[in-house]
């Protein structure tokens, strides 16, 4: 299954772009937007991965690390790698949102509840990475990061409901609605769903690659440490 992750990601991303660019219709003159509507197949999927999948992974892995029965380096690594990939996806969400916002709202950035809270989430995620670099002891680092990983997750519901709680330029939820009613139809809905699958697979592909890199980095650190200790012992002898 792990070997299939890469090819599946590429195929689903290619399907998203083919469906999004050639199969789905433009927006009508009445709806406005024209080809701009095709951002629908990129921006919401990126936001879905950034806010829910990726932060969910960090929060669950952090909680599992803090629970003594499931505490392991694996959980710490998963939480860390997921947060690092989160930074990429949140940044892409903000960039694509800004590109979509410029022709729609007339500005690259608006002081809107959802935009602002998402930008805050990016800073929180960068804070997580800064916190990890501030502690040398692996156990202290893992423990503090896990607590912060849970604290950061508090922001996600605020972002999700920001468009409902406050007056917002950003449109309301169209797929993940409280009532369960989906307000996208036909080929657009299918393409949207394919895009969600494609970007989720891409996320897990990146996460897996980053995790393997982290394992190798830990192994290299351990090997360096062992060789330094051995050298000292030889000097002593």
């Amino acid at each position: 299954m792990q070997r299939l992750l890469g090819p599946l990601t590429l195929v689903s991303l290619a399907a998203t772009f083919v469906l999004g660019l050639w199969v789905t219709p433009k927006a009508t003159m009445h709806d406005g937007g024209g080809d701009l509507v095709r951002m629908l197949y990129v921006h919401p999927a990126l936001a879905w991965v950034a806010l829910y999948v990726s932060f969910g992974t960090t929060t669950i892995a952090s909680a599992l690390y803090l629970w003594k029965r499931t505490r392991s380096n694996t959980m710490d690594r998963v939480a860390y790698c997921a947060m690092e990939v989160s930074v990429l996806f949140i940044a892409l969400t903000l960039i694509t949102g800004s590109i979509w916002g410029r022709p729609t709202w007339g500005v690259w950035w608006a002081w809107d509840a959802r935009l602002t809270s998402t930008a805050i989430l990016l800073v929180l995620a960068l804070g997580y990475l800064a916190l990890r670099r501030a502690n040398d002891d692996p156990e202290t680092r893992a423990r503090r990061s896990a607590v912060y990983g849970i604290l950061v997750a508090l922001n996600v519901p605020i972002i999700h409901f920001a468009v409902t709680w406050w007056k917002s330029l950003h449109q309301n939820a169209t797929v993940l609605t409280v009532s369960g009613k989906v307000s996208v139809h036909g080929s657009m809905l299918w393409t949207l769903l394919v895009s969600f699958i494609a970007f989720t697979l891409w996320y897990f592909w990146l996460l897996r690659a980053r995790y393997r890199l982290e394992v190798r980095s830990d192994e290299a650190t351990r090997a360096q440490l062992a060789s330094a200790v051995l050298e000292r012992q030889r000097e002593g002898a």
Partner: peptide
């Protein structure tokens, strides 16, 4: 108090604390 405990004892708590706490204080 929570964020202070998170940054205490690490490298540069005075610079790390604002990065962690300011976004949480924003709401």
């Amino acid at each position: 108090t929570l964020y202070g405990a998170l940054t205490a004892g690490g490298e540069g708590p005075a610079t790390l604390l604002p990065i962690l706490a300011l976004p949480a204080f924003a709401p």
